[in-house]
């Protein structure tokens, strides 16, 4: 029963992959080895598409692998499998938090956790920065210093920065605008 197996494999991934969406990758490689549902090459294509479509990468990956393996029901079942452990665990954790939110120790823990959480998100920002405004990825391939700074990228970033701080426009507007600028100026 492929659906059951698909659910089981993605449930396992959802249970053991901790962190962002790309944390699912090692599990998908071993799934490929074990089941032969898809090849490493297909997986690489799936990552590229998951990164260049709306939606969190982890979900996109599960949907894609599920669809490749067993069509539309497969995509739904794989995604459900991936999110099921997270839903259960978070609902339990949230219950505990509610019960102990006024506990002094819990508050002290969060006093330390909050800046750490912001630090980790700031690190994620650094990694997007080195793939967008600063092109560390291109520089590593070519070794040419001028590849490191993309002038149109820096200009776009400056304009978006000023507008986001001067206006109350919805973030969606800036995403769409950035896409159009990217197409027109061949980013």
């Amino acid at each position: 029963m492929i659906y059951l197996q698909l659910f089981y494999e993605f449930f396992k991934t959802g249970l053991f992959a901790v962190g962002g969406g790309l944390a699912t990758l090692p599990f998908l490689y071993s799934m490929s080895d074990k089941t032969g549902w898809f090849t490493y090459g297909q997986l690489a294509d799936m990552v590229a598409i998951s990164e260049s479509t709306p939606g969190p990468i982890g979900i996109n990956m599960a949907t894609y692998v599920g669809f490749t393996t067993a069509g539309i029901p497969g995509s739904i079942i794989a995604t459900l499998g991936l999110v099921a452990p997270a839903i259960v665990v978070i609902i339990i954790v949230a219950g505990f938090l509610k019960k102990f939110q006024n506990n002094q120790y819990v508050q002290n823990v969060f006093y330390g956790l909050r800046p750490a959480s912001v630090g980790m998100i700031a690190a994620a920002f650094v990694s997007v920065l080195t793939m967008s405004v600063i092109r560390l990825d291109l520089f590593q391939i070519s070794g040419v210093w001028t590849d490191l700074f993309s002038i149109p990228g820096i200009l776009l970033a400056a304009v978006v920065y000023v507008l986001t701080n001067k206006t109350k426009w919805h973030p969606a507007f800036f995403l769409l605008g950035s896409a159009i600028v990217g197409i027109i100026f061949q980013f």
Partner: peptide, 14 residues
């Protein structure tokens, strides 16, 4: 090209 642009936008928003 669109996604290279979007990444710049995402970078500033984040």
């Amino acid at each position: 090209h669109a996604f290279a642009g979007v990444r710049v936008g995402v970078c500033v928003l984040v």
